[in-house]
């Protein structure tokens, strides 16, 4: 079967379009999150989005309309906590992850029962993307990309040095909130296909790979974006041939590229 034939299936087309855009957004935001030592927030948000999704399904609401505001709210809250000295934000993220997971599982088992649904939410399904989801993904990912490009320099400054940016009058809180909202959107959009347990790797892996290979921030951003898109496409195609879940296959592809970059940078240093 050729590539053209694979992507003639409508569900594969939808997965390709939405997935590529989501991986692109995740990679861009991931660089900033990883550098700010906020990787765990991405992970925490994906667990929250699982809980939100379970509740939305139980209530019979369109999942995205319910999950997006809930996850954005949590992102806002987590970021506030990370910035405050009163909270042990590490513990708070861990507690929130476990709690939302528990709520999600409870809600599912009380309503539909522990069926394949849970499996799909946790580890993703290529069939989960509906026409309306794709349209929403395209619009929101477009917004994420535009905002990222427009505020690129400010995002760099805030990522590199919050205190300095604050002193020069940049409204750091506003950009942190922007990053949090964009991350929340990306995670919610990506989790149906990638799975709640796996979506955070889409945020973290490309950034780690790019940071091993490039010396400039722009280089890292561009490399992360390319790596992420290539890994997603490769993972999606491979998952079709091997009949494996998309999410896991994409993560393994990312892991492979990361290990490769590790070897390359180790060789370069010798």
């Amino acid at each position: 079967m050729t590539l053209a034939q694979i992507f003639s299936y409508p569900f594969m087309q939808r997965a390709l379009v939405a997935g590529t855009l989501v991986s692109l957004c995740a990679a861009l935001l991931g660089v900033s999150l990883v550098l700010k030592r906020y990787s765990m927030i991405g992970d925490g948000l994906s667990h929250v989005s699982f809980g939100a999704l379970a509740i939305a399904v139980a209530l019979g609401i369109t999942p995205l309309y319910f999950s997006i505001p809930v996850v954005i709210l949590c992102a806002f809250f987590l970021l506030r906590m990370a910035g405050s000295s009163h909270w042990n934000s590490d513990a708070a993220v861990a507690a929130m992850s476990a709690a939302s997971l528990a709520v999600g599982v409870l809600v599912i088992s009380l309503t539909t029962g522990m069926t394949t649904d849970v499996d799909n939410y946790m580890f993703g399904s290529v069939l989960a993307m509906k026409e309306s989801d794709v349209v929403l993904s395209v619009v929101l990912c477009g917004a994420v990309l535009v905002l990222f490009v427009l505020f690129y320099h400010k995002i760099f400054a805030v990522t590199f040095d919050e205190s300095f940016s604050r002193a020069t009058g940049v409204r750091v809180g506003r950009y942190n909130t922007l990053i949090a909202i964009l991350t929340a959107l990306t995670i919610v959009l990506g989790m149906r296909m990638m799975g709640a347990m796996l979506i955070s790797s889409l945020v973290i892996f490309p950034a780690l790979t790019a940071m091993r290979l490039f010396k400039s921030f722009r280089g890292v951003i561009l490399c992360a974006a390319c790596t992420s898109v290539v890994c997603f496409t490769a993972g999606l195609t491979a998952s079709f041939f091997l009949s494996t879940p998309v999410g896991a296959t994409v993560v393994v592809a990312n892991l492979g590229v990361f290990l490769l970059s590790w070897v390359v940078s180790a060789l370069r240093r010798r």
């Binding site: 030592r37 320099h153 020069t168 490039f214 010396k215």
Partner: peptide, 29 residues
């Protein structure tokens, strides 16, 4: 005002060129 804060741990291994860092000082909020 130019401010030279104490360096953070995250900054020490930050992937950015010297030019990118210096240019970010020109940002005025």
């Amino acid at each position: 005002v130019g401010y030279l804060p104490q360096q953070t741990r995250a900054q020490r291994d930050f992937p950015a060129t010297v030019y990118e860092v210096v240019l970010s000082g020109c940002l005025n909020g």
